[in-house]
Nucleic acid binder design. Structure first.
Lengths: 204, 204
DNA sequence: TAGATTGTTAATCGATTAACAATC
DNA sequence: TAGATTGTTAATCGATTAACAATC
């Protein structure tokens, strides 16, 4: 793509979307950068700056059309398209993610779970269960957009590399180690770091 | 406290700690800002800037003593002290967090879980189970540092406010809505936003 | 000693905020 | 029309990087 969007802006994009979704649910049809800014704890200038990086979606003197801007955000984020996912590691977190099934709103569908042991996963509903040895074969036959890594820290990098080598372009990592790859993007959800920051901030 | 540490720095503090912990485990005794910077994908200048905000922990010409700096970081982060936590909401994520028990490294102990229904939680080990109606009474008698919010989006703010009003100073929020309070610090783990960013980045 | 590396000051870069003409 | 609000340019602010004297 053309212009490089800064991490700081990318950080805020989902927040815009969520807020617009909420407004839309509440039948609100128009919104100003000022209103958005108050809801998100940022400045109106920043809202306009951010949005204008993708185009002029508002109307001078009027504001933004909620549904229209929501749909635009959906498109910008890429969540208007369906994405398929697999979970690597059927432990507590892996299972929680699978049975949560709360990512339908983002159009993400978890299709399968892989683990070294599969016995304890037989009862998990709505998802295929495989031994990790079948990973290669599975990915060859099932186009997969996202690999969710929920294995132990020690195996996270190895498993992630394995799926990246097999062509997966997006890694959603829940192991407490930051992953970076060439040829794939990663989002690291590091709970342990988040907890440390919380403790730090709570005493400062 | 005296100087205000920027969010950007706070973001990195746990990463320094984790890396130092790893070095320590591997019996490495000394490390330079350059080595740290390579491991963490930042610049050596930044490492020195960050650390020097808290004091001069290194030795000119020599570098940093791993164990010493690790202990300093532990103290700065506040994880040298034990912290108690409760979980509000015994659903999938709540249960996963409880049984994970992986926060011992941060000296955090989950003591109790609260839910509207407690029947399904009877089997959860190592933690007391209460009905939310007992929250007030519990907090009066059990000093609690951290409340982990893992209820539905709709109830997150209400429950968080309730514990904040009861004196809890740190909120670790897993509901897909950002929380902010006066008089308490919050860390929001927003998986849904993270997923959107992943999808955005994977197509750009 | 010579090389390495710190802590800190100054320079640069990028992100946020302010201002305002355009216009509904 | 007058008030509101956009998109954008310029000004400000803060964070990152570079440079270097001090020194082990």
């Amino acid at each position: 793509m053309d212009k490089q969007i800064s991490d700081r802006v990318v950080e805020r994009l989902p927040k815009y979307y969520r807020y617009l979704q909420e407004l839309s649910k509440n039948q609100i049809q128009r919104v100003s950068s000022k209103t958005i800014s108050k809801a998100l704890n940022i400045t109106a200038s920043q809202v306009r700056q951010d949005l204008s990086q993708f185009g002029g979606f508002g109307q001078t003197g009027v504001g933004y059309n909620v549904e229209y801007l929501r749909d635009i955000m959906k498109e910008i984020l890429g969540i208007n398209n369906v994405h398929t996912a697999i979970v690597i590691g059927g432990g507590r977190i892996g299972q929680a993610l699978i049975s949560y099934q709360g990512f339908r709103g983002e159009n993400v569908y978890i299709k399968a779970v892989f683990d070294v042991y599969t016995e304890h996963l037989k009862s998990v509903k709505g998802v295929e269960v495989y031994n990790v040895s079948e990973l290669e074969n599975y990915l060859k036959n099932n186009p997969t957009d996202i690999a969710i890594i929920s294995v132990q820290k020690e195996n996270a990098e190895k498993m992630a590399k394995r799926v990246v080598d097999l062509g997966v372009k997006a890694i959603w990592n829940f192991a407490p180690i930051d992953l970076y790859f060439d040829g794939a993007v990663c989002e690291n959800i590091n709970m342990s770091e988040s907890l440390m920051r919380l403790i730090y901030k709570s005493k400062v």
